[in-house]
Amino acid sequence: MRRYDAILPYLLLAPGLFLAAMIILMPLWQLSVLSFSDVNRFGVPRGLTGWDNYARIFADPDFYRAFWRTVVWTVGIVGGTILVAFPVALILNEDFAGRGVARVIVMLPWAMSLTMMAIVWRWALSGESGMLNSALIWAGVIERNVQWLAHGQTAFPMQIMIGILVSVPFTVTIFLGGLASIPDDLYEAARLESASAWQCFAELTWPLMRPFVNIAVVLNTIYVFNSFPIIWVTTQGGPANSTDILVTYLYRLGFRIGRMGEAAALSLLMFLFLLALTAVYVALATRKGRA
């Protein structure tokens, strides 16, 4: 009887695990094979080549540039999103007239596809007829049109900003869930002890929200690191590769230039990097949580 209890959970999990393995491990296996093969432009392998594909990626200066830009991109968007989403969630958690409407407005962008969002922003950022330029000129901030997408120095910060905007709704949702789970009597007790609003936040809200912040960081990092549409739609990684991140570099490598073997190697590397990053973060976060 007891032995039966011990295997039962695994038995119940088995079908799900099997499906997940088929969906995740099969492509991973195929990718690994491709990454060690000489692959033609149409993805047909022509024999093994060892580490050639990896060596060629590490010899490409564009790869390093794209890598560091991806770090800036991910840290910028994930950090920015947390900074924006936290106060927004705190406000939406308060009781005020029109809270329902405010929540809907904050969540609404979530209902739109990322690609559509990016296309709208491409129009808004257009140097000649873009809404952003019109608005800024009207407000007296700038005197002449700024060509936002013509230079990496202006295009990339704008792309990060779009990234933050589209990540906020999801993150606010996580935070609202977290805030709802904090019992009100904790705050009542704190107020009885004459704690200030800041003390309530620093001693109660923030520590109790830590697990939710951790989830938001991990999930957003995974989404943002691999996020393709914003950059592809607005600049395709240009001009002169100045807004290229790893995933756009990967797409060009595979589908424009036709180096499928190198593309397979790069996507494996990206997967491993993300896996390691997430594992380290989760380990750190849980350790702190216990202390």
């Binding site: 140097g127 049109n145 060509q147 013509a150 295009a155 240009g238 002169a240």
Partner: peptide
């Protein structure tokens, strides 16, 4: 030329 050539 028109402005913003590298985005055109």
């Amino acid at each position: 030329t028109q402005e913003g050539v590298t985005s055109m």
